[in-house]
Computed example of a mutant assay.
Amino acid sequence: MLEKKKYPIAEIYVPAKRKKTLDPAKVETFAESIIEIGQTTPIRLRQGKGRYVLLEGLHRLEALRALGEDSVEAYLVHARLH
């Protein structure tokens, strides 16, 4: 089972391909929601080389960044070995 933990936003890398999907209106909507009720859904990360890589939750991450937060609740996902 995945464990929800806080991770520093400064240590999260967002791949360029994912950044292209950023919608500023969605970020604003998420930011308003976070102000009202807090972060309800954790983002998903994987361990990279000396940093974390965003897998899911770009708009939530950017909303928290816009609000001046320094950490985000996330699940750390481990790659499956085949």
Rank of each mutant, 00 (worst) to 15 (best):
D23Y: 11
L61C: 03
R44E: 08
T21H: 12
E28T: 13
G48W: 03
A66K: 15
G57S: 05
G50V: 12
A31R: 11
E62G: 03
T41R: 12
K6S: 11
I12T: 00
L67S: 03
R44Y: 04
Q47A: 07
E69G: 03
P15L: 00
L61G: 00
V77A: 01
K20R: 13
R18L: 12
P24C: 11
Q47E: 15
K20N: 04
G48K: 03
L64S: 02
A16R: 14
A79P: 09
R60K: 11
V77E: 04
A16I: 07
M1Y: 10
E32H: 09
A63Y: 02
P15A: 00
A10R: 10
S71N: 08
V53T: 00
L61A: 01
I9S: 04
A16N: 07
E56N: 13
P42M: 04
A25P: 00
E11S: 12
F30K: 12
K6C: 01
M1T: 07
Q47K: 13
H82L: 09
R80Y: 12
A25T: 14
R80M: 09
K6D: 09
V77K: 05
M1A: 09
R18F: 01
L58W: 01
L76F: 00
E3A: 09
M1Q: 09
A10S: 14
P8F: 05
K19M: 15
